[in-house]
């Protein structure tokens, strides 16, 4: 039992990311308001970013920027265990940018929808479409 608890506590990052992801996914499917769906989409993307960044963490390591890169001590040996994994950080920089870009386009589309129908509530939109 205490084993299980220690595993659960040790991997808490993963549980948080799964929770966030479920919140985002639920908002995207179940919410009625289009902007709330966009908010859900952002939570969903953020959850994935948290997941990737959690992969990169290494106990007892520091940020992946070499100290004394140039100048004094430039030739000291670098040990991989001293620095966290840089690759997930690089990948997530890309994912953040993609998230921002998607958000921009989604907001622009929402504005177009609002201009046309004067509402962002999905049920009202469907009612207006059915009327015609």
């Amino acid at each position: 039992m205490s084993d299980l608890i220690s595993i659960i506590v040790a991997n808490y990052n993963y549980w948080i990311y799964i929770t966030l992801m479920m919140i985002g996914l639920y908002a995207m499917i179940a919410k009625n308001n289009l902007v709330k769906k966009i908010v859900g989409m952002n939570i969903f993307q953020t959850a994935i970013i948290l997941f990737y960044v959690s992969i990169g963490v290494k106990k007892g390591a520091t940020i992946p920027i070499l100290q004394h890169g140039h100048g004094h001590g430039a030739h000291t040996v670098v040990h991989a265990v001293d620095y966290v994994n840089p690759l997930p950080h690089v990948l997530m920089l890309t994912a953040i940018v993609v998230g921002v870009a998607t958000l921009g386009v989604a907001l622009a589309l929402a504005i177009r929808v609002y201009d046309r129908y004067n509402t962002l509530e999905e049920d009202e939109l469907l009612a207006q479409i059915r009327e015609k």
């Binding site: 920027i65 140039h70 670098v78 950080h89």
Partner: peptide
């Protein structure tokens, strides 16, 4: 990446 970046690209910031 961590050990070779400096000699291959001469950039201390690995990211």
């Amino acid at each position: 990446f961590i050990e070779k970046t400096m000699e291959e690209t001469s950039v201390p910031n690995i990211v």
